[in-house]
Design a protein around this nucleic acid. Structure first.
Lengths: 237, 237
DNA sequence: CGCATGATTTTGATCACTCAAAAAACTAAT
DNA sequence: ATTAGTTTTTTGAGTGATCAAAATCATGCG
């Protein structure tokens, strides 16, 4: 009944591969195999045993998808991963680009008790250092309504909410230019021809980044304004 | 080159099994197998491959012992284990009888970097919550000169230095009677016939324990007196 | 000494996970 | 619709760790 680290990794990979899905909502075996750095045949075999345990649906030659049970388990793995990442940053003094690999290992051995201590110590946080949402102990995730720098309105103050890329060089770049989650910025210019997005950041600094990179920065519109509105409504009550 | 969790556990078991050694200093296979909860044949096979990696000496039908390389590795595993235990108690709010199993898992996946952060955060401690010495990053252990409650002088103030038993019920008993490392106590009476040792503890409370239990409590004689002497000599300089 | 007893090693098998390479199945394009 | 190309599955094999049970060894007792 206890899921091995391998099983957990397969479920996590399927869970996180939402972008690479076929119309039917299935993840092709090839995608899965390559995201796990495993030969295609290996993924097929493993997925078949996962299907026998009732953790995934498997359609031969089509792909794989999580069952509710598999999804819950995957979310719990992610919960552990993200809480550990935040813990490493907040408590252990890690830089945010250093935590991924450590968390990758720890997520498979840490007990529920320790995870709950961490959760408690961090004040039941909702997101990890990259802005990724932390599923709750039942495996449910609060969906965040964020758009990317590619789709958000121009000349409108927004707050960085999430960075969807674990690459260390990218993370260091983001940090170096004050684009970490929490910073407020504004998109000044977007140009498809030159594949570039110009952003005004902290201290009116201008940074131009490619659209590939821009798509990995999720932002929320004027959360400060929303906050102000919320406070106002409370005060008025 | 990277030692698997299994290899680490075998080395650790051999390292810790010092008491159960033959005259030649070898640990019999049977002992090893049962301390790892593994069939005898399994231990034999595994030890042979350990011998091929140069981590142990293996004498067929006689037993096994660590090579210097194996001993160093075992000590590093123990370093991780003990630092994690202390971390769980001091930082994560675990009770000292709850830490063993968690540490048992974490010790195999934690990086050197994290261990060093923990070590630093705890102030480079010399012992874990049970008083077990923590090997340094090179795998060397400072030998502590402690005697058990069975051998220490009677009617002499001593300080509990170490508790050699991970059994949770025993640890709770020790804690409940204020016999944890650091407490000062005194042996009042020992009687082989009744297999008992009477101890005067905190607030002059008397506790009588069996000799089996007494042998698991290590103490140091009058460390306070030694401390006073040290301070005196410094002051006089 | 010889042999019974207990410890140890061998043997044959299994399980989880993996790969490389052959076979089969889908897909799209002419 | 046949083919060329890609993706997926199958097959055969290997590794690390394990067990049960058979074979072997070591020792001590009579």
């Amino acid at each position: 009944m206890l899921a091995s680290a391998t099983v957990e990794n397969y479920l996590k990979a399927i869970y996180l591969a939402a972008p690479a899905r076929t119309p039917a909502g299935l993840l092709p075996m090839g995608q899965l195999a390559s995201s796990l750095n495993v030969a295609p045949g290996t993924a097929t075999t493993m997925v078949k045993t996962l299907a026998e345990s009732g953790l995934v649906h498997y359609e031969p030659y089509a792909g794989v998808a999580l069952t509710p049970a598999g999804e819950r388990l995957a979310a719990l793995v992610l919960r552990r991963h993200r809480l550990i990442e935040l813990f490493l940053v907040r408590v252990m003094g890690y830089a945010w680009d250093e935590v991924h690999d450590e968390a990758e290992q720890l997520e498979h051995v840490v007990t529920d008790r320790l995870i709950d201590r961490i959760d408690e110590m961090l004040g039941r946080p909702e997101t990890d250092p990259h802005g990724d949402p932390i599923p709750n102990a039942e495996g449910r995730v609060k969906t965040q309504d964020a758009q990317s720098l590619l789709t958000c309105p121009l000349h409108t103050p927004v707050t960085v909410a999430r960075v969807i890329d674990q690459d260390r060089a990218f993370l260091r770049f983001i940090e170096g230019h004050h684009l970490k989650p929490g910073e407020s910025i504004e998109v000044e210019h977007r140009d498809a021809a030159s594949d570039s997005v110009r952003v005004r950041g902290k201290d009116d600094q201008r940074i131009t980044i490619g659209m590939r990179a821009a798509s990995k920065l999720l932002v929320q519109i004027a959360p400060l304004l929303l906050l102000v509105a919320a406070i106002t409504s409370i005060v008025n009550a």
